[in-house]
Every structure is written in C-alpha cells, then in structure tokens.
Nucleic acid binder design. Structure first.
Length: 590
RNA sequence: GUCCCCAUAGUUCAACGGAUAGAAUGGGAGCCUUCUAAGCUCUAGAUGUAGGUUCAAUUCCUACUGGGGACACCA
C-alpha cells in the first residue's frame, strides 16, 4: 500500500495521530514498522475515534495480534491515560486484534471547533499543491445538438474535481474543447439549407442548440426518403474545408446559435465559463507535421496501402491510423496536437473527463504521446454513461423524453417550486423561485455526484430525482435549519472559547466527524471522485439531524447555549464548504 | 472474434483486503402545543455460479453465466 507523501488532516486530527504514532513507536519497540501501521477510522463511532490493527505487525514479528492489542491497551492505560497532561488521546482499548483510541471529548471539541471557526471558509484547505499546475478538460461537446443528462454528469464531475484540487492548493486550469466542425454539423447545415427556409431560433422562439438539433434530427429522418442528402452533407463539409464563403457564413451563424444555447444551459447549471476554450475548427489541421516527423523517426509506420499508423499491437491495443492514404488527418491527430500544446504549460498533470466508451481511444492517445517522448502525466477520468431503464438516451429521433439537460432542469425547478410553496406560504414569489432553483440544482448535482464516476447509472426521469432521503436537498435542509437557529440566537461566539459543555454522544460524534473533513477532501482528490465528499456530507447531515432531534439549542442557557451555537456554526460552515465543492448552493431558508 | 467495464436488499446506489455488508427508496409500526416533519425512531429485506490466493475476500486471481461498451482510411 502506498502512503501519501503528504496528508491533509485537520490540526486536531494531526495532533491525535502524532500522539498515537509516538506511543506505538515507543510501546512496540523493535516491532514498530511504520509501513505496517495505519491509523484508520473504526467502522462505528462508538468504537472509538481511531483504530490500528496489528495483523501485519504481528505476522512480521511472529506475535499474536490479539495479545499485542491487549498489551498495548494496558500499556496506554497505565502509562498515558493516568497522566491527563493535555493530550488529545485519552484512552485505548483492545478489541480483538484492533487497538482503538478514544479522544478526550472536551479537549478534542476545543481543538476542532476553535480550528474550524478560526480558519473560517479555509477549513479543509491545504497548500500541498502549491506551485503545481494541473489542467482539467471537461464538457467538450459536439455542437450539433442540445445537451443531455450525460453532459451534465461530465460537467458536474469536471467542475467538482476542479474545486477539490483548487482547495488543495493546485493551480487548476479548467479547459474545454468545442467539437465544432465535421460531418455531424454539416448534416445539420444541409438540412437547414433544404428545409430551414431562413428560420432562426428567434423567429421560431426556440433555444439555439435545440433549433440546430432539430435540423440534425431532421436530416436523419429524411435521409430514408432522400438519400441524396448524404451527398449534400459531404459537399458542405468539403466546401467548409475549402473556406467557401457562403458555407462558412452559415456555419458561423449556426455555431453562434448552438454556443449561445450551451451558454444558457451552463448558466442554468451555475457554471460560468472555462479558463481556456479550444475549438476543433481552429486546430483540426494542426499536428500533421508531428505525425510526419514521427514517421521519419521510425515511431510511426506507413502501410503498403498508403496510410500512416501508430503500431500499438505491441502494447496490446489495435493499431491506430493517423493519416489517410490521401494525406488527410484523422481526429486523433488534433488530439495529439492539443495534448502537446497543453504539455507546454508546465503541467503537473493533465486530466481528461471523457466517457468510458472512449477508454480505448484515450489509451491509444496516451501511448502515442509516450512514444513521441511526451511524458506528461495524463489521466483519463472515465465515467459511465447514464442509461434509461429501457435503454440508451440517444436514439435516431434525437434524445429521449426527460433526458435533455434543459427540460430536466426545468421540470425539477417546477416540482421544487411546488414543494417550496407547500412548505412556505409566506415567501415572496421571487424568493420562492430562487429557493426552488437552488434546490432543483442541488438535487440534480448531488444525484449525479453521489455515485462513483465509473458506475453506469440507470436513470428514470419519472422517479430518480427526489427531494427526500439521501439527496442534495437533505443536505441543504440541514444548512437552512442551522441558519434559521442562528438567526434566532443572536449571540456572538468567541473562537477562543473552551467548549467544555459539549458532552452528549450526539455532540461528540458531530465533532469527530467535523474533524475528518480535510482528510475526505484528500481522498476525493486522490481518486478524482467527488462521491467521497457527498458521502462525508451525508454523514455530517445525519449526525446533525440526530443531534437536532435530541439536543435542544435555543432552549438552553449560558455556556451550554453558546457552545452549542458555536458547534452548529461549525457544522454550517463545513456543510456550505462541502456543498460548494459539489457546485451546490447552500440556502439560508427553504 | 478480440479487448475493456460491470454484477450487492423489490429498486437505485455505498463499503482504502479487515470488526455485525451500509444508505436511500418502496413495505410494516410509531413521533409535530417543543429550535423548519425536505426530519427522527423501530421493523423486515442482499454479495450471480464454481474454484483459488490470504491470518482475513463484496474487494485480488481463474473459469463460467448474465448485462454494457469498444475494436472504421467516422468524430
């Protein structure tokens, strides 16, 4: 097992871990081997705050793990526990082959709550990425049809992973590539020329991407009766490549409509642009020199039939054709060019958020780059597709009902609005609209990010998205409830306070969980997986909800009151920060 | 045909090789004169099959079965 070179722990957790390591090193003596000791979290909070298992150490030293745990627990209790000298770890208990450590609840609460309130919004941040640049390319749509829930998954993943790395101090460049040329667009253009009759999104009152998508679908539908359309599309493509003025003019017009539509969808998802935008139309001819040089250097080969290819069978992949017999380049050539362009930015790593159906294509791309001598760390963040209970989203007729990004968001906003009205008769129409928008997006983004990226999700437009249970709105609800209490409490909390009165089980578990936030951020980063954050936040919300049911806040007085206010302030802050990582807004009221 | 991914409660998803396989939803039973019931409590319910590695396997390996994806001089 590899150990991270640097860990993102809260200061409180770091203190506890150092105490444990120090104790174990001394107590185990010559049997202590750092590579076999892992401090983990026990499966249940009541078992303790940290745990170490002795399987490995015992095996290496020929001892019995149960006895080791028992002896070490005794040693801790007789030597350390009695001292009460300001340590975080107060007790140790041997349970089978595990040694469980318990924090001093009061001292740990002091440390954790002070740290969170002291660091404010920066709690959980790290500088481990200081001076390191990474680029993450995501979204990268084809520009011939509107966006689907599949694109939304891509966007949510890319956006969230970007946030995670930013928090760890990396310089993150968010990039996208518009696939704005080629046969698909030519088809939409051909259909528009034939049946468009000078209509426009404005004249038809349709969003630009939907407008163009309509013609793309029309092309496919009418092709059956009118096979000549195939030729018409090819003709347009050829004219486009030659720079035919009329074709280019039409293309610019239609691309403008599509990109305008995309921009609207992105805004409705609260995504506000990318640091770098690449356009296929601007780079698609580039890269040919690289291939020819590679051929000259013996890296690539020329087939007797005339095409140039990368020999990849030696690496267990099919060979990849790069240049056609007529000398024109295939799509991957511009990918190679773009990757090399990126590598000139001194990147620590370059991440591609691309669906798993392109696993092979990206493996080939990365291998070719390696063959060319570019050893940039390329990572494919591969995600599974979203399917419907009865099959794929895409079909010949375009996309299936309920899976378009725009209609999905709109439907969700409408049902969220009904809920808000039901629960909040007193809010203004405008406010209700704002809140329902926040909730709708919370539900959608959480739904997508709560599962591992590579899982193929079965999505039922009628049933899948809900506002109850393990959902985004549940987390938002916790935030809103805390906000409501704080509004009523009207106290100033001191960051230096000692939170001596946080004694209940519910408070202890909350503090314990709060202290783990930074380590979950790191876990999410290592795996490029925002679901580590959703998992963390769901548990935080659970702990809070149980606390809320059982522990009164506004009804108690004095120090107990102010301590609990401090605690829930910390919960609110961590919840807001975590939701922000997911791209979800935290409402004050709902 | 070759390669890749997946298989866990009725359903949709969890589980760095470790403690009693967790949630949610749906089913059953409760909790609003008390800080927002989008909540809380209790209850029934699952690792495709056969081997192997390991002190320990949902997790790693092999085969099988069943799903999905990829393998164009398309993008």
């Amino acid at each position: 097992m590899e150990k991270a070179t640097q860990n993102n722990y809260s200061k409180a957790e770091m203190k506890a871990r150092l105490e444990i390591m120090e104790f174990l090193a001394r107590g185990l003596g010559k049997n202590y081997k750092e590579e076999y000791i892992f401090i983990e979290y026990p499966p249940e909070p009541e078992m303790g705050d940290y745990t170490v298992s002795f399987f490995r150490v015992a095996k290496e030293s020929g001892l019995n793990p149960q006895e080791m745990a028992k002896n070490m627990a005794e040693l801790f209790e007789t030597e350390i526990a009695v001292k009460k000298d300001g340590r975080i770890i107060a007790h140790a208990k041997g349970v089978g082959p595990y040694l469980n450590f318990m924090n001093d609840a009061k001292r740990f609460a002091d440390n954790v709550v002070q740290e969170i309130l002291g660091e404010g919004e920066k709690y959980g941040y790290s500088d481990m990425g200081h001076g390191k640049k990474i680029m993450i390319e995501y979204f990268s749509p084809n520009t011939n049809k509107p966006l689907t829930i599949g694109h939304v998954r891509n966007i949510c993943l890319g956006y969230s992973v970007s946030r995670i790395y930013k928090i760890l101090g990396y310089g993150v460049i968010e990039a996208t590539l518009y696939n704005d040329r080629g046969i698909a667009i030519s088809k939409a253009m051909a259909a528009y020329l034939k049946w468009g009759d000078k209509a426009s999104p404005r004249s038809e009152n349709i969003k630009g991407d939907h407008f163009v998508g309509k013609y793309y679908v029309m092309f496919g539908e009418k092709l059956v009766d009118d096979p000549s359309m195939e030729e018409a599309a090819k003709d347009i493509l050829i004219k486009w490549e030659k720079g035919d003025k009329k074709v280019i003019q039409l293309w610019k017009k239609m691309m403008g409509w599509v990109l305008d539509g995309f921009s609207t969808t992105l805004k409705s998802l609260s995504i506000h642009g990318f640091d770098v935008e690449y356009y296929e139309s601007k780079i698609y001819t580039k890269g040919k020199e690289i291939i020819l040089k590679g051929l000259g250097d013996g890296i690539f080969k020329k087939h007797p039939e005339g095409y140039i290819y990368a020999p990849l069978e030696q690496y267990g992949m099919p060979d990849k054709i790069l240049l056609r017999s007529d000398g024109t380049s295939l799509y991957i050539v511009q990918d190679i060019y773009l990757s090399i362009l990126k590598s000139k930015k001194n990147l620590e790593q370059s991440i591609y958020v691309v669906g798993s159906e392109q696993d092979l294509a990206l493996r080939q791309l990365f291998k070719i780059l390696e063959m060319l001598g570019y050893h940039l760390k390329n990572i494919h963040l591969s995600y599974g597709m979203i399917r419907l209970p009865d099959g794929k989203i895409k079909s010949r007729e375009g996309i299936k009902h309920g899976t378009g990004a725009d209609e999905l968001i709109e439907n969700l906003e409408n049902s969220a609005l009904e809920e808000v009205k039901k629960r909040n008769g007193d809010v203004s129409k405008k406010k209700a609209g704002e809140i329902s928008r926040i909730i709708a997006l919370g539900a959608l983004k959480y739904y997508i990010l709560n599962v591992n990226a590579k899982t193929i999700v079965v999505f039922d437009p009628e049933k899948s998205l809900s506002f109850v249970g393990n959902t985004g709105p549940y987390l938002q609800y916790v935030h809103a409830r805390i906000s409501s209490i704080l509004k009523k409490s009207k106290v100033k909390i001191s960051r230096r306070a000692e939170f001596s009165s946080l004694r209940t089980k519910e408070e202890k578990y909350l503090v314990q969980h709060l202290s783990k936030f930074p380590s979950y951020i790191q876990r999410a980063a290592e795996k490029f997986d925002p679901s580590a954050i959703t998992l963390y936040l769901y548990e935080l919300a659970r702990h809070f909800s149980i606390f809320y049911e059982n522990v009164p806040i506004l009804k108690v007085e004095g120090k107990l009151f102010s301590d609990r206010i401090a605690l829930i302030t910390a919960v609110k802050q961590v919840m807001a920060c975590g939701l922000k990582i997911l791209g979800i807004d935290a409402p004050e009221k709902m």
